[in-house]
Design a protein around this nucleic acid. Structure first.
Lengths: 117, 117
DNA sequence: TGAAAATATGAACAAATGCTCATATATTAT
DNA sequence: ATAATATATGAGCATTTGTTCATATTTTCA
């Protein structure tokens, strides 16, 4: 969309927009994706389920920081955990997350390439 | 996605994930959508371009608050402004925003309906 | 030119956020 | 039972965030 072109919004979507709870819930999922560490966690889980320590290695932050962020993601229903011996394995629990990340990354890739000249 | 089912991530997307700048840029667009006021602004602009005072009426916050948020959205390249007499008309400048909001709202609608029983 | 209307912006501040540190809990192996 | 490993969690803290208030800036109209 450029130069004054507007997007058609589905009727269904418009009905969602008038529902405060739904709008708030939507902002919550975007918030989950707005932090660098959480985004790394979720993108790692998009590829495959992983333990806390694996996620710690990927994200280069402390175990505590990972656990705190995983709790937030759990509370928001974006991931779920299952114990496997000493390890706790986390997995994505929402199919929309991968879609959002894909669209967000496509947007970002364009933005970065434009900015870099 | 449920019960251990994992999502296939496109090769292109995986290359994006290894680019720090792109990942950061992606978190920035999600951050833009993570605030209730900004989400209202962007969803209003999805339907049609609007002036600051129109947005103020829609979002039920002060003119100053709207202008501050519009500046943030402008700085991140999500909206652009054109003057029309005394008014300044804002419009979406990114086609991905509408897609993201649609997917986010679909997710939210499911989440809210599940929570509500 | 001067007043009114619309928008932008800087300072200040309370609230939220993400991290670290210390410590608790849970599981396995000795 | 005890130690070692993996994970969770509460408190504290520095930073960020979203808002309000006061004040600029811009445009129109009398």
């Amino acid at each position: 969309m450029r130069e004054g072109h507007t997007v058609e919004v589905d009727e269904l979507i418009e009905s969602y927009l008038s529902n405060e709870d739904i709008v708030y819930e939507a902002t919550q999922i975007f918030d989950a994706l707005s932090d660098y560490t959480r985004f790394q966690i979720l993108s790692a889980l998009c590829v495959e389920s992983k333990s806390v320590s694996e996620l710690k290695d990927i994200c280069h932050v402390t175990q505590s920081a990972i656990s705190h962020q995983l709790r937030l993601l759990r509370d928001r229903g974006l991931v779920f955990a299952r114990r496997e011996g000493q390890r706790v394995i986390y997995a994505l629990s929402d199919e929309h997350v991968a879609t959002l990340m894909r669209v967000g990354l496509e947007h970002a890739a364009e933005a970065v390439s434009v900015e870099g000249e």
